[in-house]
Amino acid sequence: MAAKTLKINGTMVSAREGESILEAARDAGVAIPTLCHLDGLSDVGACRLCLVEVGGRLRPACTTAVAEGMEIQTNTDRLHAYRRQIVELLFAERGHVCAVCVASGHCELQDLAVSLGMDHVRYEYLAPTCAVDISHERFGIDHNRCVLCVRCVRACDEVEGVHTWDVSGRGTSARVISDMNQPWGESESCTSCGKCLLACPTGALFSRGATVAEMEHDPGRIALIVESRKVRG
């Protein structure tokens, strides 16, 4: 496998062929904000937070492969402004109220807002009333906190091999659904493995019984499972 040499923020770095810009940047100690990306899962390029400038053009770092001689900027003013706007759009989309959220303090959306300096939302809150499904005996899903990153969908499909979760509807009406859009507790395919909970970046998926700030996800476990299978396999 050939190595590629490229420039990230003006510094020469080397990367493995086939690697994404995101991986190459992380290897080089350059942090790029992400939301829909999760180590161990396939990338979908949906949240657009990892957009970087490649030769002046915007490219998602998670799904763009490195190439010889690439010149990448990961943190220009333009990128910072866009990222902040995107996080603001998310906060305005559904009911993200940190003060009463199980994941407060352990939430990737909250972390993004803090790191991007998003101290207020300039857009009108859409404030839809979304369902909360606690029909499952151990877990619950609160769609008010869902950001549609579909990490749960991918973890269930790719790691557990079940595909209980998927998405129905379009636009802001899109919702993560279990099986044929039935209550989670009535899902026949769900194995109650809890991988979707590990993967969720916000308080949307939670263990029943957790209260404000008590829900700690463990997204790193997904990569661990995937990696350990590789070693054994």
Binding site: C47, R48, E93, L148, R170, G171, T172, A174
Partner: peptide
Amino acid sequence: CMDESCGKCIPCRVGTVQIHR
């Protein structure tokens, strides 16, 4: 466009709604 946005990426999903508003 707002009605036809698939909802996958955030700028199109929520941005079109905000523009429409």
